[in-house]
Design a protein around this nucleic acid. Structure first.
Length: 254
DNA sequence: ATGGCTTGAGTGTCAAGA
């Protein structure tokens, strides 16, 4: 199984790039974030024509997540059980016995802000949900845009970013708490190029200068991680005209 | 240099992203 995650920053704008990427890379499953599309406007027909089943949870203007899968999507869930919230940031489904939890973790705006507190509370609730789901589904992937760079090597300029949102201590602790459930960051299971990032600011030629962060992740239960044969970041779509600011992350399982 | 681009909403200009 080839599994991917991609924050597309507006599915309406990025749909041609997404469909082209699906046609060329043929992932079995792709998890999308920041679709910014209400469910009634979701381009389901285009995905189905490309050979994918789709499930979405979207809203106007902000957030929104979706899963496209070549095999049927079962046991769909769209909420964190103990976190009542209007923001559409999670969608879970089972594909061929593998549980997939696709998340768009809140950005957090600035350390100490209301949005930052909301991010940490959301992550605490996610940890509880992931723990419960892992007991029920031995093969599980928690993947998406985590808006956290877990270590300094995931940051182009750790000194400049020191203590700020996306890298702050409490955010990294929340990420480690997910790993402590037994989840594995499969990207780090393999040798990777130095300065591997998944997001680059649109401004200041950040992509050209590789001024990025690694904030998009594929975390797998041990049983699933054991079958992972590679995990890579595909930088190509980031170099296109009118790109998303995020690149897809892809993992392959035998 | 707290800017720098991009998107959606909506038609002037701002919030939000990371």
């Amino acid at each position: 199984m080839k599994l991917a995650t991609w924050n597309v920053n507006s599915l309406r704008v990025r749909l041609p790039q997404v469909l082209d990427w699906l046609t060329r890379y043929r992932p079995d499953v792709v998890c999308l974030q920041e679709t910014k599309t209400e469910d009634r406007n979701f381009p389901a027909a285009e995905f189905e024509a490309a050979g994918y089943h789709v499930a979405c949870s979207g809203q106007k203007t902000y957030n929104g997540v979706a899963i496209a899968s070549r095999r049927p999507l079962k046991e769909l869930a769209r909420t964190l059980p103990d976190f009542p919230d209007e923001q559409k940031r999670l969608i879970a489904a089972t594909v061929d016995g593998v549980r997939l939890i696709n998340v768009y973790v809140p950005n957090g705006a600035a350390v100490g802000s209301e949005k930052y507190d909301y991010k940490l509370a959301w992550l605490q609730s996610l940890r509880r949900y992931a723990g419960v789901q892992m007991k029920r589904y031995p093969k599980l992937a928690l993947l998406g845009d985590f808006n956290i760079a877990p270590e300094d090597r995931d940051v182009h300029d750790p000194e400049a970013w020191q203590g700020s949102v996306l890298v702050s201590g409490p955010e990294r602790e929340a990420f480690r708490a997910l790993l402590e459930l037994g989840l594995v960051d499969v990207f780090r299971r393999f040798d990777q190029p130095p300065e591997s990032f998944s997001w680059w600011d649109y401004r200041a030629a950040a992509f050209r200068r590789n001024h990025g962060l690694r904030i998009d992740h594929i975390l797998c239960s041990r049983a699933l991680a054991e079958t992972c044969t590679c995990c890579t970041i595909d930088r190509e779509p980031r170099a296109l005209e009118r790109p998303s600011d995020h690149a897809p992350v892809v993992a392959v399982f035998r």
